[in-house]
């Protein structure tokens, strides 16, 4: 059988094979068999070199025609297949088959956002011990020995022979550790867990997370604090928010201020969530108290600085609308799944 006859036979076989209806799978197989890289047509093209030189031209023409024919026919079949409903019972509404999805904890997600905004403003992330020396948590932060925060009812102390440690009540001791180690300019944030002896309920958790910001340099002013805090909240909640500063008292800052932000739910017009005030309480701040500087060997006449702290759960609660702080620590998959 010469090669032209063979071509004819292949063509007839293909015609016969494509009379019938196909499933998508069968058609796919047919396409691979005829047009694939190692398919029948490719194989015939490889055999051109075996054809006598004078017949090659004609053979090439017929072969090309065959290729075009096969291609056209397969595409025609595909088109009909696409146009009519599949014959076999394929239920495309069956759910997708998936693996387990992992994800980050909502508090990590929020902390990452906070860190991003601060890093954008040139802050470095610092950490420090959670089982902290009493002196770093209180004395060096200018907390007088009679301050109620030191009470056994407010603070967890640790049972060691030296009785010199507690579970830190703020991330502020990190400020002290950094200032003792490093000369100004200093620009850090310190995120981490803090502990307070509060009975757990919907709004209190004995263990929660804070972020503390500290900026120390020559000529740092109250206006720098206000500007940075505003920039931070805008970074986190959008350019429309405003901040309000209210006088307050913290042992380690003076002047001290409580920071309020425009209520994100009512945009400041007053609602249930902001107790009709239009403001949400967001954190404490102030100018580093000169006594704190003296304790770490920084001259308060030469340098000044500000500190700012906020609760991460508070931000998460606002951003995600969570109504019970304990949910963050229960690790119910149905809860975690909603964020990560």
């Amino acid at each position: 059988m010469n090669i032209s006859e063979e071509l004819g036979k292949i063509r007839r076989a293909f015609e016969a094979a494509t009379e019938a209806d196909f499933t998508a799978e069968e058609l796919g197989k047919l396409r691979v068999a005829y047009l694939g890289r190692k398919g029948i047509v490719a194989d015939l093209f490889d055999r051109i070199r075996d054809v006598p030189a004078d017949e090659r031209k004609e053979f090439g023409r017929v072969l090309n025609e065959l290729k075009l024919f096969v291609t056209a026919r397969i595409e025609e079949h595909e088109a009909t297949m696409r146009s009519k409903k599949p014959k076999e019972n394929v239920d495309v509404t069956l759910p997708g088959i998936v693996g387990f999805q992992g994800g980050l904890h909502p508090l990590t997600i929020i902390l990452n956002e906070i860190t991003d905004v601060f890093r954008g403003m040139g802050f470095t992330v610092e950490t420090g011990p959670e089982a902290e020396l009493i002196s770093y948590n209180f004395d060096k932060l200018n907390t007088p020995f009679w301050h109620p925060a030191r009470d056994l009812t407010d603070t967890f102390y640790l049972d060691t022979p030296a009785r010199d440690k507690l579970l830190r009540t703020e991330t502020s001791p990190v400020q002290i550790r950094v200032m003792e180690r490093q000369k100004p300019p200093i620009r850090i944030i310190a995120p981490g867990r803090v502990y307070r002896s509060d009975k757990p309920d919907a709004t209190h958790s004995p263990i929660f997370m804070q972020v503390e910001g500290l900026y120390v340099d020559k000529g740092v002013s109250f206006a720098d604090l206000k500007g940075t805090v505003l920039a931070f909240y805008r970074g986190l909640f959008g350019p429309h928010v405003k901040t309000r500063f209210r006088p307050h008292f913290f042992p380690f800052t003076e002047p001290s201020a409580e920071v309020d932000m425009t209520c994100i739910f009512c945009k400041g017009s007053g609602c249930r969530l902001c107790k009709q005030s239009g403001w949400l309480e967001m954190g404490g701040s102030g100018m580093v108290d000169p006594n704190v500087f003296l304790g770490v060997g920084i001259d308060p006449e030469e340098y000044s600085g500000w500190a700012f702290g906020l609760g991460i759960e508070r931000i998460a609660i606002l951003k995600f609308g969570v109504d019970d702080i304990r949910l963050f620590y229960e690790n119910d998959i149905r809860f975690l799944r909603q964020f990560g």
């Binding site: 693996g99 387990f100 999805q101 992992g102 994800g103 980050l104 904890h105 508090l107 990590t108 990452n112 860190t115 470095t124 992330v125 950490t127 959670e130 967890f156 579970l167 867990r193 502990y195 958790s205 004995p206 263990i207 963050f328 620590y329 690790n331 998959i333 975690l336 799944r337 990560g340």
Partner: peptide, 27 residues
């Protein structure tokens, strides 16, 4: 910076293995 970066990478690697991050009380 490196510590922060590695911490992120560790958490992301675990999440990509189908694990969810939990945060438990340390007491």
């Amino acid at each position: 910076e490196r510590e922060r970066h590695v911490t992120d990478a560790i958490k992301n690697a675990l999440a990509s293995l189908g694990l969810r991050e939990a945060v438990c009380w340390s007491l």
